[in-house]
Nucleic acid binder design. Structure first.
Lengths: 182, 182
DNA sequence: ACATTTACATGATGGCAATCATATTTAAGT
DNA sequence: ACTTAAATATGATTGCCATCATGTAAATGT
């Protein structure tokens, strides 16, 4: 049955939201189109009315998720603390799309890579602005180094079993960054 | 046809070597059992004589690849330089299994996670030893922070398209680490 | 009101991949 | 030499998933 224009727009938004959470949680390959549609409260048939293919969904979901990804207006050190926390590590579906999906983008389409490129560019710029005063060159270097360490730490913390080493990776990376940022 | 004991052992080794390169290049999901066996010069049928399942192959390949992963006896700064280099970024199949596979391990079996845990523990210990003299606590913190940044940087550099931002991520992360290690 | 468009549902279709069944060949043990 | 066990090959089987085909009903425009 046909639905109203706004209903359709809302459906589309829900598909993207739900896809973002499912992809972050289980990975692109492990989530079927039918699963996304079901989680959005629809059936698989209507999918190709919204997206041209699953690859298209992946690319649009990335752009959607990375655009929403920001760290508000709190202190940067608070952002780092919550990012490098067990709560974030243990909830990829509500977590950072970069930490959850960046590594998988290598195997995706150019459109997906383009979305990631833009998202990374924006995130580096945000961190640069949040960093305390220092030379512009140093600031950019620090923004990139810090972001790489944060993403890498969460990925590593999620890859190991048992909390000991995993917690330590988060905690020590936070300490390592703090000695640099203050 | 049956082959000699040593032939079988060599076949097994070749399967693991080939699987390691294929998995690093294309990801666990995108590589079929048949593809691994073909690349090893065998057919798919014999696979289950060597491994109980594809999951088993994944876990054993990880242990195999991470055990071989070390950085010889050169200067640590040389290791960092070659790790954060376009050549490494562009050749995942010959590259570091942690950078290539760590993020995918979240979706694998406990055996695979155990292999990663052990591999990470060993790598942190190696970096600690390679670091210049300073307090033991600082050394461990630096080892973990540096390794997280290295892995994160390669993952990010591989996720973006076009060399500009990608090269910069590698280069700036190297600079960021160098200001700490000398 | 009516015609038409269209968003979604139901129900194929086709391909691929993991795993299993069986056959074949030959190394190993006696 | 002969028997036996085992490694690999060939050939199902089964299930899942992306995508497509068609139906249906409601929204939109006149």
């Amino acid at each position: 049955m046909k639905v109203s224009r706004e209903q359709m727009a809302e459906n589309r938004r829900r598909i993207l939201d739900v896809a973002s959470r499912l992809f972050k949680d289980k990975g692109f390959d492990a989530v079927s189109v039918a699963e996304v549609m079901k989680a959005a409260g629809l059936t698989h048939g209507g999918f190709y009315g919204h997206f041209g293919s699953k690859d298209d969904l992946v690319a649009q979901t990335l752009a959607h998720a990375l655009a929403a990804d920001s760290f508000g207006d709190g202190q940067f050190s608070d952002f780092v603390r919550s990012y490098l926390a067990p709560r974030h590590r243990d909830n990829p579906d509500n977590g950072c799309p970069t930490a959850g999906l960046a590594a998988a983008i290598r195997h995706q389409t150019p459109a997906a890579k383009a979305a990631m490129t833009e998202g990374l560019r924006a995130q580096i710029a945000r961190i640069e602005q949040a960093l305390p005063e220092q030379g512009a060159a140093d600031k950019r270097r620090a923004a990139i180094g810090i972001w790489a360490a944060m993403v890498g730490a969460v990925i590593l913390a999620r890859a190991v079993d048992g909390p000991q080493l995993s917690d330590e990776v988060l905690e020590q990376t936070r300490g390592w960054i703090d000695t640099r940022v203050g």
